[in-house]
Design a protein around this nucleic acid. Structure first.
Lengths: 349, 349
DNA sequence: CTGAAAGCGCTTACAG
DNA sequence: CTGAAAGCGCTTACAG
């Protein structure tokens, strides 16, 4: 029983012949939405099994007038947060019959702009764009009519749906955790940019203020990129310039927190004894570094699912049964998050 | 100047009409390999630009008899090594006209086996399978005729091409580095499995022995998974059982090294003062942890390029000009690597 | 439900 | 090079 590499793949007509039904019936069973009786359905599925039929997606997509491909754009695929998000998007998209074309922006405005203008070499059914720098106006004004969903930390008011977690609420939760463990001088690495919507950094600030405590400007540092290097140098600069060292530090990402810890260690400060440190994202390494990182864990699968659903809503019903047509994009979608407490904010050491 | 979302996309015939040539000529310019005069070529490209034409890949693939899709299987996409490898594969595949369908095995034998048997919901032009556990015999005996390339740390003798770095040579380089910095009692977390081909762990052992030094069995520990947790517990167990602490530790991955450092710290040992630590992979966090990690950096882009080329060689010429036909798979492909020295093996602290 | 057929937008022999 | 046409394997109105 050898398998000939060159043997032609079974087609829909082969299945129809074996099952003794019409092509249309097979097509309906395979994915169309016309009602098929249970008996016929079973007969067709048995025939599919027998000849080992798999639909040719190129033909299906050609006939349906869609490409079957969406693009997913992230800053970099070697950032675990975006990598695992990409994994979840690939899964969620697959359940809607989509392949995912991966793109990387490099993490700067220029790369995001290029992705938005999307000079893709092929036609896309939609795009999911993870952005840190693009403004809502620029997103709204794009010339390309391809259905779009935006992911990222800041809400994007306007016609384009946005999926994210409630960063302000997460920042509040971080503040409450640090305050609950007795910390009072809280530093913030990755300050909110002026004029930005309230995000995780603003949430932290509001949470500290709500407890009647000040947020000292000299403990609040912006960074240019969410990398370990940027976190390390911003923290080192802060430590060099401040009179009294903070007793807690909130970094806007885990990677930034890892850099901050390097700077604290270089100054001879122990974590968490002298300074409690919190990150954000719950990357897989958060539990492996020394000390392990307390962090906020966004529900990546929920983000991915919402994003694909928001895209599907714009594309409109693909199947005959979905006769609702393209729905209006509907703004803001929030996914859940969780506070994960580990050693870096512990009181034990 | 509004863009109608519903306006029909330009087709090949539209380009042909504008350029005043035949469909076939346009097709040849777009990707066929029949010779076209420079003047005609320029006329066609101008027309493509004018009507903003993009080929419909579903139609092209249907006509060419390929799906335009290859599958890439990795343990997990949130492991930065595999994530950045995936990014490189996506790029390299794109240059050959392929989309990449991402799969994750979860990192166990069962997941790899399922990927190998490949019950994919669609037809694939090829598969790139990153494996840690599958044996060469099982890979060679697969029933599925889809062209396959295997990635991973152990060579796979047999008909299926394998791409990787020379792990044994990398292990030798690691040993030489540790010995050159004066270390003599070298521990190994992630021992070679019995009967396995010589890999990075065996390379380290051979390098130490070549210097006339013993490799102590009690300093050589296997682990069940290349995670931080596994590295931490294996290292902790070793430290608890050994009479004299090692002065260096080689971990088979950076993540394992991060766990090992946690265990060393828990025992009050300083890195690198008391114990030098080396990892493997050069994940982005290797430079952000404290202390930053000395490691081996495989050339991921070279791995990705070789893998896609090895796949292309099996699929055979897609374009009319490539009339060589499917080439015989040709075994082992090695990509370069680099030793990156950072703080964790430094002598400065 | 069936059957026969048009159409999706390409590629590619074929005759000129 | 051109022109006219078949074919890739689906989906889907159309008449029954």
């Amino acid at each position: 029983m050898t398998t000939d590499r060159r043997s032609p793949r079974p087609r829909l007509t082969d299945v129809a012949a074996v099952a003794g039904v019409s092509m249309k019936t097979v097509s309906n069973v395979m994915g169309g939405y016309a009602p098929v009786s249970e008996a016929t359905r079973a007969k067709v599925l048995a025939a599919v099994d027998q000849v080992r039929y798999r639909p040719n997606l190129s033909a299906r997509n050609l006939a349906r007038g869609r490409s079957g491909v969406i693009a997913l754009t992230v800053p970099r695929l070697d950032l675990p947060y975006f990598a695992s998000l990409a994994g979840s998007v690939v899964e969620a998209a697959g359940e809607h019959g989509w392949f995912v074309l991966m793109h990387q922006t490099g993490g700067d405005l220029d790369g995001e702009r290029r992705a938005l203008l999307g000079d893709h070499p092929q036609r896309l059914d939609g795009m999911i764009l993870s952005t840190q720098w693009l403004e809502a106006e620029e997103i709204a004004a794009r010339p390309d009519p391809t259905p779009l969903v935006v992911l990222g930390d800041h809400p994007v008011p306007g016609p384009v749906p946005h999926v994210g977690i409630d960063n302000h609420a997460a920042g509040l939760a971080a503040a409450q955790h640090l305050l609950a463990t007795g910390r009072r001088r809280i530093a913030l690495i990755g300050a909110p940019s002026p004029g930005a919507e309230p995000g995780r950094a603003q949430g932290l600030i509001d949470g500290v203020r709500a407890a009647g405590l000040p947020v000292l400007p000299e403990l609040t540092r912006p960074i240019t990129a969410n990398t370990g290097d940027a976190g390390e140098s911003a923290t080192a600069r802060m430590l060099a310039e401040v009179d009294e060292v903070p007793d807690a530090l909130f970094a806007v990402t885990d990677w930034v927190a890892m850099g901050a810890i390097r700077a604290l260690h270089a100054r001879g400060l122990a974590v968490p004894r002298d300074v409690a440190v919190m990150g954000f994202d719950d990357i897989p390494y958060a539990r492996s570094v020394s000390p392990s990182l307390t962090t906020i864990a966004p529900d990546r699968e929920a983000v991915a699912r919402s994003a694909v659903e928001a895209l599907e809503a714009q594309v409109g019903g693909v199947l005959p049964g979905d006769d609702a047509g393209p729905a209006a994009p509907d703004g803001e979608h929030f996914a859940p998050f969780e506070l994960v407490v580990r050693e870096s904010t512990g009181t034990g050491i």
